[in-house]
Every structure is written in C-alpha cells, then in structure tokens.
Amino acid sequence: MKARGIARPISTVVMPAAALLLLVGCMSTQTKDPRGFDVAPLFGMIYGYDNQPVPGVEITVDGKAGPESDLMGRFVFPDLERGAHSIVATKQCYETISVPLKFLNQTQVLYLQMYSQSQLLDLAEKRIQAREWARARDLLSRAASVDPQDPACRFVRAILDFKTGRIDDAVSGLRSLLDSGVAEPAVYLFLADIYQDRLHEPAQAAALLEQYLERKGSAEIERRLRGLTHGD
C-alpha cells in the first residue's frame, strides 16, 4: 500500500487511525536554507494503528537494507541523498508498507503507521458488525497479504461471505479450512448452522454437529443433534 504526503509543522502532527501516514514537519535546524543540501539524515517513527510504537521493523531504501526501528519505533537514515526514494517497511506478521518519498528538505520527518494481521482482522470484524461490507473486504484483503493461508483470516472471510449472501463461497471457504487440517469446533458449528438454516440439509448439519461434539462437549449441541436425528 502507498502513503500520501502532507506538509505541516511537526508540532501540529496528530497521528490518525489510518493504514499509513507520511508527514513532512518543520524542525529547528542550524541550516539557513534547509533545502540546500546534497546528503542529510532523515528521521522517522513507526506507529501501530493504536498509536503505539512498533519496534523491530526492517526498513529498506531504494532496495538497500537500512535501519531497524528501536523500542520507541524510531529510526534514522544517516546519509540520505536529496531527491526521490522508495521506502519499504517490513515486519513478521505485519503488512508491508511501501512509501514513495521525495526528500527535499532537511527538516522532513517520516511517520509510518502499519498494522499487524491480527489488528486488521479485529478491524474487519468490527466493520462486519457495522455492516460496512466494502471496508471489511478491504481490511481482509490487506490481512490476506500478510498470510493468505492464515486460518483466522479465512474464517473471517467466510463470515463476510455469509453475511453478504455469498453462501456457496462461505461453505467452500469453511470446507477448505477443514480439508487443510483446521479442525476447530467453531468451523464445524458454523457449517452446521448453514446447512441446517440456509441450505435445509439436516443430514449434513447432523454430521457436522457430531464432529463438533467429538472435539468439544456441549449439552445444548447434543439436544440439537437429537432433534435433527430423532425429531425430538
């Protein structure tokens, strides 16, 4: 994903809850003309969506290894040439951030905001609850860019498909989870609900409830299963 630049004094910077933010701030400097340079340091900070610093982020500039953010999320390029650059920030379990940067002023400060996959999924679930389908789908796509095979990501996508009436896609996604060895009780129960209430296939629902009970005991589910199989 790409960032956008905004020119404003650093004293007025307020980090919003966005995927990425590139700010240009004014800092005190001994240089009379901050634009008159060939090489200068560029300082920056990386925050999570909750505005907490993100340490251990590896940063490259123009494809070359650069600094790593410290415990406070800070980093510095000590000798960056004036002009256009490509900044990429990566960390395991986080989405990758790609920033086009024009370094034209020694007082520039680079602020990045990046999300972990779990944070993206939490936000997607909130958007689903709010029935903001397009926003939820965008967040899920970003989460999938971190690890498309992550079971939690695939499960939340099935929820979104179900909520938006894409029943076949939801069933396919949940079946794919089971086929890949993800035998979580919640997957069996979700599928059973779909087969019983939407597809009206009680035999399929009963088989899934049996598999659910093999993994997690529940008197309520036992009563439900008896109702499907014996008409109780």
Rank of each mutant, 00 (worst) to 15 (best):
G83I: 02
A84P: 03
I87Q: 05
I87V: 15
A89Y: 07
K91W: 01
Q92S: 11
Q92L: 02
Q92E: 14
Q92V: 04
C93H: 09
Y94H: 11
Y94W: 12
Y94L: 02
Y94V: 02
E95A: 06
E95N: 02
E95Y: 05
I97T: 09
I97E: 11
S98T: 01
S98F: 00
S98G: 00
V99H: 01
L101V: 07
K102M: 13
L104P: 00
N105D: 14
Q106R: 07
Q106A: 02
T107K: 12
Q108D: 15
L112M: 14
L112V: 04
S118P: 00
S118M: 09
L121K: 01
D122K: 03
A124N: 07
A124P: 07
K126S: 11
R127A: 15
Q129V: 03
A130H: 07
A130W: 05
E132M: 05
E132V: 01
E132A: 12
A136W: 08
R137C: 00
R137D: 15
D138R: 01
A143H: 07
S145P: 04
P148N: 10
P148H: 09
Q149T: 11
A152H: 06
C153K: 02
C153Q: 10
R154H: 11
V156L: 15
V156D: 10
R157I: 04
R157S: 15
L160H: 07
L160N: 08
L160M: 09
D161S: 12
D161V: 02
F162A: 10
K163E: 15
G165K: 03
R166E: 14
R166Y: 11
D168W: 01
D169N: 11
D169G: 03
A170D: 09
V171R: 06
G173M: 04
G173F: 04
G173E: 09
R175S: 13
S176I: 00
L178N: 06
D179M: 04
A183H: 13
P185S: 10
Y188L: 07
Y188N: 10
A192N: 12
A192P: 14
A192C: 13
I194C: 13
Y195A: 07
D197E: 15
D197Q: 14
D197C: 07
R198T: 08
R198D: 12
R198Q: 12
L199H: 12
H200K: 14
E201I: 04
E201V: 08
E201N: 15
P202V: 11
P202R: 08
Q204D: 14
A205W: 05
A206L: 14
A207Q: 15
A207F: 08
E210L: 03
Y212A: 11
Y212G: 10
L213C: 09
R215K: 12
G217T: 01
G217A: 05
S218R: 00
A219D: 06
E220H: 06
R224V: 08
L225N: 11
L225Y: 09
L225S: 10
